[in-house]
Nucleic acid binder design. Structure first.
Lengths: 244, 244
DNA sequence: CTGCCCCTTTGATCTGAATCAACGGGACTG
DNA sequence: CAGTCCCGTTGATTCAGATCAAAGGGGCAG
């Protein structure tokens, strides 16, 4: 699989508009041949968002879809009195903005500088209709996100504070590991408040959980918002809910 | 849309194997013409599950996919110490068993007598590959379920007990209303414990929330596990999190 | 009809995490 | 370089919901 993808990457002409895209093979673009990819790319444009800027707000009509190539966003909903829930963090390779509704149900805000491709929804849909291989990839991505969302449901419904934080950290480590198998340090571009709003906790409780994991020797907190994984197994036990 | 579907339903020959299926147009079967539908149906078989029986367990290899035609199931995960989270309730017209993993991450257990069609996953995938219109429906269903899952994430992460119960009830009422616009009574085939395990609460808290909603005159509890909607608006305010 | 079981409801008490409060530190600003 | 702001951490107190406990009711087997 990696080899095949490697070949396809190598096969892309030098002057191809997606030639420098680092996440091409992590998203459905990887399912397209060079020519189709160029056609696809021409449907949209690229842009950058600075920290705090939003690609769209809850309630906006969904006119564009996005493909993130660099940086992290948070996808959140606000309740009328200010309570906030971050449904998920969006990372390079993630697709964003697809909705069955006419209107976005969440706000997508950049946590750090974000580069992305954007496509008018109508054109995107037409292209997808004409390219079944895209449809298949889209379905696979939706299924994947659904699995992640249900994992989050288990976390929010039944796990304790420290189990939630352990699960969150492991998910981050595993995401890094998918690319660098022996990388044991992860950067967390989001604040404690963001993590809390993702895990259904408060920033104080998240902070205490980090401290507790550090004291138990499972992780180390490194300057510049980084965390090192010291002992994976007990962290996995905690995350799985084994009352450790 | 309803008219178009009505026509398509009427167009199905009398002796068609799906002729009596009441949910055909609620699921992707509705996107198939009579002949293709018959071919599709022939790929699998129908069966019934009694209350308490499981279509599959967490950890089983995912060899079959299911289409529920009657009855309700619960889809749940157990943590090692017995904590349980019901990811969702599955109803007629819902598709079940699709997973990106080789193995089911949840158990699907019947709450009441359940009729369903089942298909070997491999054959189903092949059929879907050959019929792009199915792929599109599958994607739409996955996107729909993802939206529902994220709604549940907001509920579990940030809503209070009574807001959760109000949201749950409204979702039930709306599901009924989609078919019978002025129907204000809904049957709840699941126990208080099931509802609690869906909403991240305990059965006692769920029961107290029902009592509170009844005392406020928003709902009435009717024998035979039924609930009547008396005042929709305040219930909607509660569900939206307006601190009523 | 009786007894058993399970479900629901209600009450009393407990507790994990929220809230309230304070402090230290890094980044930016004027 | 003082001032401000935001972030993270830690401590004290509070509270929503969990847990523990008990009683009532419907369904069903014998």
């Amino acid at each position: 699989m990696t080899d095949e993808r490697g070949l396809r990457l190598a096969a892309l002409p030098r002057d191809h508009p997606c030639g420098r895209c680092e996440v091409r093979l992590d998203t459905f673009c990887g399912a397209l041949k060079a020519k189709e990819l160029a056609e696809f790319k021409a449907l949209g444009s690229t842009a950058r968002a600075e920290p705090g800027q939003c690609l769209f707000h809850e309630g906006d009509t969904a006119e564009l879809v996005f493909n993130v190539t660099r940086g992290t966003l948070k996808l959140y909903r606000l309740l009328p009195d200010g309570r906030r829930q971050i449904a998920s963090f969006i990372q390079p390779g993630d697709f964003l903005g697809l909705t069955v509704e006419e209107v976005h149900a969440y706000t997508a805000e950049a946590l750090e500088p974000v580069d992305y491709c954007r496509f008018p929804r109508e054109r995107f849909d037409r292209f997808a209709d004409e390219h079944p291989e895209i449809g298949r990839e889209l379905y696979a991505m939706a299924a994947h996100e659904l699995a992640a969302a249900r994992e989050q449901i288990v976390l929010l419904g039944r796990k304790t504070a420290i189990e939630r934080v352990a699960s969150f950290l492991l998910a981050r480590f595993d995401r890094v590991r998918a690319r660098n198998p022996d990388w044991e340090i992860v950067r967390l571009p989001m604040t404690r408040t963001d993590i809390a709003d993702h895990l259904g906790l408060t920033k104080e409780t998240v902070s205490r959980a980090f401290t507790s994991l550090r004291r138990r020797g499972l992780i180390a907190l490194i300057p510049d918002a980084r965390v090192e994984l010291l002992r994976r197994e007990p962290l996995e036990h905690l995350a799985a809910g084994e009352r450790g």
